[in-house]
Design a protein around this nucleic acid. Structure first.
Lengths: 174, 174
DNA sequence: GCCAGTTCGGTGATGCGTCAACTAGTCCGG
DNA sequence: CCGGACTAGTTGACGCATCACCGAACTGGC
């Protein structure tokens, strides 16, 4: 529990800029994805996760773990995407409670059609604006902050029986 | 329009970590604010902006400009907060189209009661996890990205007649 | 004065994200 | 086999955020 000191004025400015930066970035990415492929970032990440899965399908829970989303959010998201014909749910033989979520042909098509442009957008809007040291700095700060928050979040969540804490995936060469 | 090269795998990892970091951070801050003061970050930033205003009140448009929000979002947000008694709308004498948004006593009370804890939370969750160079790196990246996106966003917005481009507020010693 | 065009702000619909509560299936001890 | 504890996933309600659109009020040229 470090310093009791207040947050300085420059720090407030940094905080505001950081928040605004993320929002502008997310908004612009969403707009482009919407314009080019009529999907949202959330849609995209679901499609991508599924396309990388062993048999192009995942259990709801695996999807939640992979994306670090809550199961409820996954469920809502999958419902919306299913109704638009991007995904399909199939029941699970080995566990009757379970559900498989898989890509439809349309879902694959949309993903393939949007991947290049979306990657280019992330590069243009984000990576191309980072100078040498900044990539490493953001990487370090991100993992450190996530690692710090996760246990905290889990303490709170524990009161409700959420035991999961495997949130961070491989950070390769950290 | 720099490089056509693809985004590397480590870069994808960084992007995912960055997005996850922001989400964890925002969620945890929201949870604490909700627990301690029963308000959201959006509520907080409106209260703060108003408390810093000349007469503790702002026109809807000024509020939108200050927060870099869309006017519609401000309108919805103010409506919700008004119905909870945190804000009040008053009509504008000099322009009958206009509306002043001001703090109620309750709104001031809530803001004062939450400010210290919220600042402490931002410090604990964000600033305390930043190492020496990282603050400067994030500051630089943030302003650069915002400056890059804003003109882009405006090109698109221009098709709809949105002419505004004054989004960046004072970045003091930039 | 009058009318076209603009600006101010708000509304309704829709998608996103969380929480609390629920259903149905599984597991395990007796 | 029964019954309680746990787990997988869903649902409903609600707040957040954007978009498309609207109506009222201001403005400037005529």
């Amino acid at each position: 529990m470090p310093g009791l000191t207040e947050v300085s004025d420059e720090d407030w400015g940094l905080w505001r800029d950081f928040v605004a930066m993320h929002r502008h970035l997310a908004r612009e990415l969403d707009r482009r994805l919407q314009r080019d492929a009529a999907i949202s970032q959330a849609d995209f990440s679901v499609l991508l996760a599924l396309s990388e899965a062993p048999d192009r399908k995942l259990r709801t829970g695996e999807l939640a773990e992979l994306l670090a989303w809550e199961k409820s959010r996954v469920s809502h998201q999958v419902s919306r995407m299913e109704s638009r014909g991007l995904l399909e749910r199939t029941e699970c033989d080995t566990d009757a409670r379970g559900t498989w979520v898989g890509l439809t042909a349309e879902g694959r098509r949309i993903l393939l059609g949007s991947m290049r442009e979306h990657a280019a957008a992330i590069r243009t809007l984000f990576f191309d604006n980072l100078q040498q040291g900044e990539k490493a700095a953001i990487a370090g700060a991100s993992t450190r902050i996530i690692e710090h928050i996760n246990p905290v979040a889990c303490e709170i969540a524990d009161e409700k029986g959420m035991t999961g804490s495997r949130r961070l995936r491989r950070t390769s060469a950290a």
